[in-house]
């Protein structure tokens, strides 16, 4: 049994760790900055200093973006898992991410004049993908791992087809879109951060209110009805919130897979399945994971900048196999 005091301590430690890693990772890059210098630059604000531009204009926005994206996708996965009652419900595997990506590409390539609509397009695409998954995967007894994977395959294939089609139709505009699509945080810094942070904070606040409902539906539909809850409404509202968090992340940086699968699973191992701890834990761990993936991606093969999405796929694929081997679902 996992004691709640222990779970609370682990969550707090993880948030502290996230903060420390944030500061440390600002130091990494072509110009190495020592931790005292980072702290000095952060404390002094935008006053002139040797590292001001690097820290404030380049590294910090990118690091914050990584944290926000990671937190968003991990929370999204945790919520989808509660809603679908299934540990495989991840925005990537279910096709929510690629649905959002297909719609974003549609705007970027076909109607670039409406570029401000990208977050909304991502949301619409994600909702459509999630609806298809529900329609395909939902059986009387709920959603089983098999049906979720199969319907995810179908949705991902469909969206892949749309993305491929758009790429050929608008091949002249493709390079910038591809750079966006593959989950890279490079050169996105300020603009992506500005686009996403308000949405993200709204999403996080709403997630706090989702904790009790997520806890109730994990007791099973019958128990939830017995407690006077409208199970269908909870499912719809929590799904919309999960899709929203995943979609704004896609709108900002494209597709990063597996975060929503790996992180809630690890969080559950560490703090148990009570969403009061599991959700904040997922948030902190997701932030750490994407931050580390991005920092590794941009430093290990410097001057090459490997997109965080690719690093996540390399970590995530084997982890997924490990989960299957362990029969975790």
């Amino acid at each position: 049994m996992i004691k709640s005091t222990r779970s609370r301590a682990i969550v707090i430690i993880t948030f502290v760790l996230a903060l420390l890693l944030t500061i440390v990772s600002i130091g990494f890059g072509s110009v190495h900055i020592s931790i005292p210098d980072i702290l000095k630059t952060l404390v002094n604000g935008r006053e002139d200093g040797i590292f001001t531009t690097i820290v404030w204009d380049i590294r910090l926005p990118r690091v914050l973006l990584a944290l926000i994206i990671g937190a968003n996708i991990a929370i999204s996965g945790a919520l989808l898992q509660a809603v679908m009652g299934n540990p495989l419900a991840d925005p990537g595997l279910t096709g929510v991410t690629s649905g959002a990506a297909a719609f974003v590409l549609l705007i970027m390539l076909a109607k670039p004049e409406y570029i401000q609509l990208v977050p909304i397009a991502a949301f619409v695409g994600g909702i459509i993908a999630a609806s298809i998954v529900y329609a395909l995967a939902w059986r009387k007894s709920g959603i089983t791992p098999i049906t979720i994977i199969l319907s995810g395959v179908a949705v991902n294939a469909l969206c892949g087809g749309i993305i491929g089609f758009l790429s050929i139709m608008y091949s002249d505009r493709l390079p910038s879109a591809v750079q966006w699509l593959n989950g890279s945080l490079a050169a996105k810094g300020h603009s992506a951060l500005q686009m996403i942070y308000v949405y993200a904070i709204i999403g996080w606040i709403l997630s706090i209110f989702a904790i009790r409902k997520a806890n109730i539906i994990r007791l099973g539909d019958q128990v939830a009805v017995n407690l006077g809850e409208n199970v269908t409404r909870i499912r719809i509202v929590l799904s919309i919130l999960a899709v929203f968090l995943a979609a704004i992340s896609v709108a900002a940086i494209g597709m990063i897979g597996f975060v929503g699968l790996i992180v809630p699973h690890m969080a559950r191992l560490l703090v148990g399945s009570d969403y009061k701890y599991m959700l904040p834990m997922s948030m902190a761990m997701g932030a750490i994971l994407v931050l580390v993936a991005d920092t590794v991606g941009r430093t290990l093969f410097a001057p090459l900048d490997i997109p965080a999405g690719i690093i996540m796929a390399i970590i995530g694929g084997p982890y997924f196999l490990y989960l299957m081997r362990k029969k975790a679902f």
């Binding site: 049994m1 009790r212 409902k213 109730i216 994990r218 007791l219 128990v223 006077g228 009570d274």
Partner: peptide, 24 residues
């Protein structure tokens, strides 16, 4: 009934109070 296996008896029982509570 199936419940998440790591939930404690006390926490499970406490869910019974939720119908008497507003959502916040």
């Amino acid at each position: 009934n199936q419940a998440p296996s790591d939930i404690t008896v006390r926490n499970l029982v406490a869910y019974g109070r939720y119908p008497h509570k507003k959502w916040f």
